[in-house]
């Protein structure tokens, strides 16, 4: 069967898979972003215990493969506690924790890239630490972090495909299921790859535009 014919035949399922992929990505990035911010802030804390918590979290995330993290949450935890998680929920937890670890490092790097003088100037005006962080350091840090943040969005989008191993019917799993019926592996994987590729290219284009608009004195206010 030709690729156009396959697309016509399978597009509702492909779109549903793509939709779930995008949903998983967005939800995980939002939760991961919050985790990343919190643990990023912990990792620049003056208190050693706070920094230690962040180090442990980041090291666990970076030191284990995502597929193992997903298996642990979906199979491991229920085996120990008897609580079964919905696969989509388990997938979101795994992906959020994973993205959160990498985002924590991105936040730490962004915050540390801002000169110490900025925090000192803000504090010398009487601003409390949290307010100085929120209004002076983070807005500048996020600017420098933008390329890394967008890169992480792309990585998380691609990582959703790993969640196919716990049976989530995102785009990759959808492809597998279709092929199990029609045996058109070459054409189907071409279509699936193209779909990822197009989405990621669109993301990259948007990110380039954001980066360009980010320089001081143009769009910011």
């Amino acid at each position: 069967m030709s690729i156009p014919e396959l697309i016509i035949q399978t597009w509702p399922r492909l779109l549903a898979g793509l939709g779930l992929t995008i949903q998983l990505t967005i939800i995980s990035l939002i939760i991961g972003g919050i985790l990343g911010l919190v643990f990023g802030l912990l990792s620049v804390s003056k208190k050693k215990a706070m920094r230690a918590i962040a180090v442990v979290y980041v090291d666990i995330v970076r030191g284990t493969p995502l597929i193992v993290q997903a298996f642990f949450i979906y199979f491991g935890i229920p085996a120990a506690t008897g609580i079964r998680l919905d696969p989509n929920l388990a997938g979101i937890i795994a992906l959020s924790l994973n993205a959160g670890g990498y985002l924590a490092e991105i936040f730490r790097g962004g915050i540390e890239s801002i000169s110490k003088g900025q925090m000192e100037a803000a504090r010398s005006l009487g601003l409390p630490y949290g307010m100085a962080m929120r209004k002076v350091i983070l807005p500048q840090a996020v600017r420098t972090m933008t390329p890394a943040l967008i890169n992480q969005c792309i990585i998380t989008l691609k990582d959703t495909s790993i969640l196919s191993v716990i049976g989530i019917q995102e785009l990759t799993q959808t492809g597998r299921l279709i092929i199990a019926n029609n045996y058109q592996a070459f054409q189907m994987w071409t279509i699936i790859a193209a779909m990822y590729f197009i989405i990621i290219m669109i993301l990259s284009k948007i990110s380039k535009r954001i980066e360009r608009r980010m320089s001081y004195g143009k769009s910011s206010n």
Binding site: A121, R123, S124, V136, P139, Y216
Partner: peptide, 19 residues
């Protein structure tokens, strides 16, 4: 934080907020 409000400081590197 309260006391610092009454103590102005000017730095060698200015440290203006670039954003």
């Amino acid at each position: 934080n309260k006391y610092r409000q009454d103590i102005g400081m000017v730095f060698q590197q200015f440290n203006l907020f670039p954003h």
